[in-house]
Design a protein around this nucleic acid. Structure first.
Length: 180
DNA sequence: AAGACGATCCTG
DNA sequence: AGGATCGTCTTT
């Protein structure tokens, strides 16, 4: 039941992992020792260097470096001077794909969940399979999964802006803007 | 060295 | 509708 998700889960195509994460729980052990679990409600897939919306499409830089590691690695980045966004690397080493965690129960929105989880630079490169402060556990299987286009990537152009690579659980609060 | 901008959120 | 706020990348 409270079973940690292991490496194999993450070593698949990001388009399999992103919807499969819905309903699973992010488990966070905070610095004071308390442990909280949050059900994942919304995700987005970013699929390697060819995906113009994916940060890895800019190549290997200090920022994108961990995206090229094996699945199960955490990729966090700081944006708009305020928010740490949470991503899980997927696939084999070199695939450079990742899932953006866009919402979790009670905390819709990637910025808000990052704040709740008290993310910071130190999570860059964290391993979800071995970490003692953040990992993933099994959860409820979603009744229905919906999809839509990804948010905030207008610059990417076709087909990337139109690919329905955002996934969310039916009935859950989702990101602002029309859930086409 | 300087400028532009972003996988966001909050306020008015 | 617009401001906050700063790391990263691009351009000089």
């Amino acid at each position: 039941m409270n079973q940690r998700i292991l490496r194999d889960f993450f070593l698949r195509d990001v388009l399999e992992v992103a919807p499969a994460l819905l309903g699973k729980k992010i488990v966070r052990r905070f610095p004071d020792g308390t442990i909280k679990k949050y059900q994942i409600t919304e995700t987005e897939a970013y699929r390697g260097i060819e995906d113009r919306a994916c940060h890895a499409s800019k190549g290997r830089t200090p920022r994108t470096e961990v995206m090229f590691q094996q699945g199960g690695t955490v990729y966090v980045y700081f944006i708009y001077g305020q928010y740490w966004l949470l991503n899980f690397v997927t696939g084999e080493e070199g695939d450079a794909s990742a899932v953006l965690i866009r919402g979790m129960e009670g905390f819709p929105g990637p910025g808000r969940l990052g704040r709740e989880l008290q993310l910071d630079r130190s999570f860059y490169g964290e391993d979800l399979v071995t970490s003692g402060r953040m990992w993933i556990e099994e959860g409820e299987r979603p009744v229905q999964i919906q999809s839509g286009s990804r948010i905030g990537i207008h610059y990417a152009g076709e087909p990337w802006v139109s690919n329905r690579w955002r996934f969310f659980i039916n009935g859950q609060t989702v990101s602002a803007r029309t859930p086409d």
